[in-house]
Computed example of a mutant assay.
Amino acid sequence: MRIYSEIDKKFSLKLEIQDELNINFPITINQNYIETNCASGLQKVIHTSGFCIIFQNFTVLNNFANSLSIEKDYIQLSLLLKGKVQIIKPLTKTIKDIQSGFLQLAFKNKDNIDIKVFSQKKTINYTRIFISKSFILSIFKNEKWFSETILYRKIKSDNYINFGEIFLPVNFNIVNILSEIVKNSEIGVLGHSYYHIKFKELFLLILTELSTKYKVVNLIKKEDLDKINMAEAYLNTHYEEPPTIKQLSKIIHLNELKLKTGFKILNKCTIHDYITNVRMKHAHQMLYNKYPINEIALAVGYKSSSHFITSFKKFYGKTPKQYIMEQLP
């Protein structure tokens, strides 16, 4: 697998990665601070035999292009958590907006694209994982749950999957796994084992989520389902400042009744309860990492610590202080 990348027409990354799984191959972790007149921030690249992970967290000052060229059979998982991005294919001149809050999965043999990043004077948070075909088949060869899926059959038979064919709105669990993968610092055999387990966990979660979505296809019109998925993605990336139902219906261009009804069918809860659930999961993680209560309250969207504590107790049955005293030694 070959990967070449430029940011703002300046060399950023050039890798040639061995396709086969090899736990004796070194794991390389590079963190580079990129500073141009268009963007400044962190690019972290993790690679070894079989896969490469690229994480970018930039403040975008001016529009810029991120060129990317990939060769040989590979599976790509990508998540734009924050930011505004367009994919431009130089050969066909195809332009496609990338919706933030959606995890996309593709299976390709080569690609050459320009990623246009738009300035909003805000942060772009973009994670991409490239995994070789032989690596995927190796780590999943004893996983019966994977070998019986359509995805496995497509990969096995070189039935390529374009961007836009498989995607789903992210949830807390998916974001958390991707964050753990990016933050991992283990190398050697232990590091290899960690990534293998996390990739399995991630694919299992993706396939479970996709299965759940497919089950409601006959209950909700596809065009409405696509918009409700957009609503879910939006709430997962704006939970700290969630829109009202009226605002959300305008954002996704779906009337309020269809939005509320379809959302409850898809997620087995109301929009209000969904937002609370997302907030509490993030709060729980921050609490476990020993953030102060007032910081957690602000981070997950509560104007006061007392309001947050009341909501936390209602959700978990105990106050944050009681909860952390029971959970941590």
Rank of each mutant, 00 (worst) to 15 (best):
N57W: 12
K82D: 15
L80I: 10
I98A: 05
S134I: 08
I136A: 14
S132H: 09
N109T: 11
N62L: 11
I95M: 07
S119A: 14
S69M: 06
K110A: 08
Y126Q: 07
K89M: 08
K133P: 02
F102G: 03
L105K: 00
F55P: 07
Q99A: 04
I70M: 09
Q86S: 11
L81G: 10
F58H: 05
K116V: 13
L68A: 04
A106H: 01
F102C: 03
D114C: 01
Q120W: 05
D111N: 06
K108I: 01
L137Q: 08
I87A: 07
S69V: 02
T123Q: 15
D111S: 08
F58P: 12
L68H: 11
L79Q: 06
K96G: 10
V60I: 15
F118Q: 00
I70A: 14
S69D: 05
D111Q: 10
K82V: 08
D114R: 02
G83Q: 07
F130G: 00
D111Y: 03
F55E: 12
L91Q: 15
I115K: 12
T127K: 09
F118P: 02
I88S: 06
D73E: 12
T127D: 06
K133Q: 10
L61Q: 11
K82S: 11
S100D: 14
L77V: 14
S138M: 08
K108Q: 14
K141I: 12
T92L: 06
P90Q: 13
T92N: 12
R128P: 00
L81K: 15
D97C: 11
I115M: 13
S69K: 13
Q104C: 10
S132F: 06
F135A: 04
L103N: 00
F58M: 07
L81Y: 14
K96Q: 14
L91K: 15
L77D: 01
F58R: 04
N125D: 13
D97Y: 14
P90A: 09
K93P: 05
L79F: 05
K96D: 15
K116T: 09
D73I: 04
K122W: 08
K121F: 14
S67W: 05
I124G: 08
K72I: 08
I75E: 03
D73Y: 11
N125M: 03
F107T: 06
E71W: 02
L68T: 12
F64G: 03
I88G: 04
T59M: 08
K82H: 15
F58C: 07
G83A: 06
F140Q: 00
I87H: 12
F140R: 00
I98Y: 10
S132W: 03
Q99C: 03
F102V: 06
D114I: 06
I95H: 01
T59L: 13
I129W: 02
V85G: 09
Q120S: 14
L137D: 01
I139Y: 09
S134H: 10
R128Q: 11
N62Q: 12
T123C: 09
F135Q: 01
D73Q: 13
L61W: 07
I95S: 00
T94N: 12
L105E: 01
N62I: 07
I54S: 10
E71F: 10
D111G: 04
P90H: 07
F118S: 03
N112D: 11
V117S: 09
F55C: 03
A65F: 11
I98D: 06
I139C: 04
A65S: 10
F118D: 00
G101M: 02
F118Y: 05
N66F: 04
F135P: 06
N63P: 13
Y126W: 15
S134D: 10
S132I: 02
G101A: 07
